[in-house]
Simulated scan of single mutants.
Amino acid sequence: MPSRSSAAPGLTQWLLVAALIIVADQLTKILVIGAFQLGDVRPITGFFNLVRAHNYGAAFSFLHGASGWQRWFFLGLGLAAAAFITWMLRRHGHQKLFAWALTLILGGALGNVIDRAIHGYVVDFIQVHAGGWYFPAFNVADSAITIGAVMLIVDELRRVRRG
């Protein structure tokens, strides 16, 4: 196992960052729930709206119309992913880009798990559109997961190049 320098973040630091992502996600969702009714749309720019949408499914509303079992499936999947990511952070927290990616995914996953546990759905509120085309609404947690996934790809590409 590689030695850790005193400057290398440990598991606690990564979990604190994930907690900050969760707090930012939940605070923005609380603001949206307080200011918007389901289906409300508030244009901000010519390509960006604030909305209130409820996603009972997963990414891009996958399984949105299922009979309700998907709530528990995605809640369990999110908790299992969080446990696995925490284990990975414990082992690889010294690999900065990899750990940042995992931390973003962890915070995002748990932010959405909290929604599923409390509401039975995920609150989405960011809507991007252009030329009559609308990207599915998303939230801070989804953004963190997406950025983390891109960082994982970049980390792997860098690893392959070095090898």
Rank of each mutant, 00 (worst) to 15 (best):
P43H: 08
I44C: 05
V113Q: 05
I118L: 11
H94T: 11
I126H: 00
L20N: 11
G76K: 07
F73L: 15
L16G: 12
I145C: 05
V17N: 06
R42F: 08
I30D: 04
R159W: 12
Y56E: 05
A101L: 09
L20A: 15
G68N: 07
A137T: 14
L106S: 04
K96M: 09
P9F: 13
L63F: 14
G46S: 13
N139V: 02
S6T: 13
W72V: 14
G68M: 07
R42P: 01
L97Y: 04
P9L: 15
S67E: 10
G78M: 01
F60S: 07
V128N: 03
P2R: 13
L11C: 11
V154F: 10
I105P: 05
M151I: 13
T12I: 15
F48P: 00
H54N: 07
F74S: 03
A144R: 00
H94M: 08
G39W: 01
G107M: 01
L50I: 13
Q26R: 14
T12V: 15
H129Q: 07
M1E: 10
G108L: 10
A101R: 04
W133R: 04
I21M: 10
A117R: 06
W72D: 13
I153V: 14
P2L: 13
G46I: 06
A149R: 03
S5Q: 10
L75T: 15
A66V: 08
L11T: 10
Q95T: 08
A7F: 14
A109C: 05
A109S: 12
R71M: 06
I33M: 00
R90S: 11
A130Y: 08
S6N: 13
G68K: 11
G65C: 00
R4V: 15
V123A: 04
G10F: 11
A53W: 05
G57A: 05
L104T: 07
I21D: 00
V32W: 00
G107Y: 02
R162M: 02
G131E: 05
A58I: 02
P2S: 15
L102T: 10
W69E: 06
V41D: 03
V150T: 12
H119W: 05
A109M: 06
M151R: 00
S3F: 14
T86S: 13
F47Y: 06
